[in-house]
Amino acid sequence: MPSWLTDIPQLDRTTLVGLRRSLDQAYRSFSREFGDDIEAFFEPLLFFLVWFEKLLVNAPWWAVLIGVCLIVWALTRSWKLIAGVIVAFLLIGFFGMWEDTMRTMAIITVCTLISIVLGVPIGIVMARSNRVQMVMIPILDVMQTMPAFVYLIPVVMLLGIGKVPGVIAVVIYAIPPVIRLTNLGIRLVDKEVLEAADAFGASPWQRLVGVQVPLAMPTIMAGVNQTIMMALAMVVIAAMIGVRGLGQPVLQSITNQYFTQGLLNGLAIVALAIVFDRVSQAYGRRIQKHRRGVIHG
């Protein structure tokens, strides 16, 4: 029997090692060459992150709580949600996790904003062109299924450990839902309404801003909601490359078998997730005023 029938054809060891070594080498020299430039590029982001985190950490706890409540009120107009937020934050503070929670909130907020700012336009472009969609879908699949540790490696090689690589890792992991659902939402907009917009002479921009995006909004908001949830899920992994916040005590608990500390910090992440989730969903419903009320036959 020929050998290729019994054993799977395989590169020999030296070729394989050589391949790995040359690829790593190439990437390393690339990061030596451009690492500083890329770091400089992300400088403003780092500056903003540090500023925002300091703001949340240094402000008195009641000021932060009032600020959060005002935002929740502006977005949802719901007393019940506000009461929930106050209870959750007081409990977090009571169990000594206030500072870590503030750090996590800062990075999640920034990551979500970046995801929306990048993701919605990408989704829109995808919805306008089948070719772009064909290219983007496998890329999004890879981003969502590739283990986060794997793409942490090149990010860390390039930028070292710290906040910026953390943000990049979280955004890569969390951005696919907002892109996918923006694309889907815009593609699902009623063709007849679009035809009406055309018939009245709407320009492509007027069509997009006046009809497509507003009608796709519920779906886009579902995407934003998913993105926030995924960003929160990344907190622990981001902690591995030096992002401070609720992830670090969890990491510490794993290595030291501190069950209660792990549980408490885990619960704090859950509380944050519930708050973000309920607020973004309530906001999504509130901007859909026209869907409420009776429908006549």
Partner: peptide, 13 residues
Amino acid sequence: SMVFQSFALMPHR
């Protein structure tokens, strides 16, 4: 200008 069978109004306006 045009009037449509299914009305084609903008539901959000």
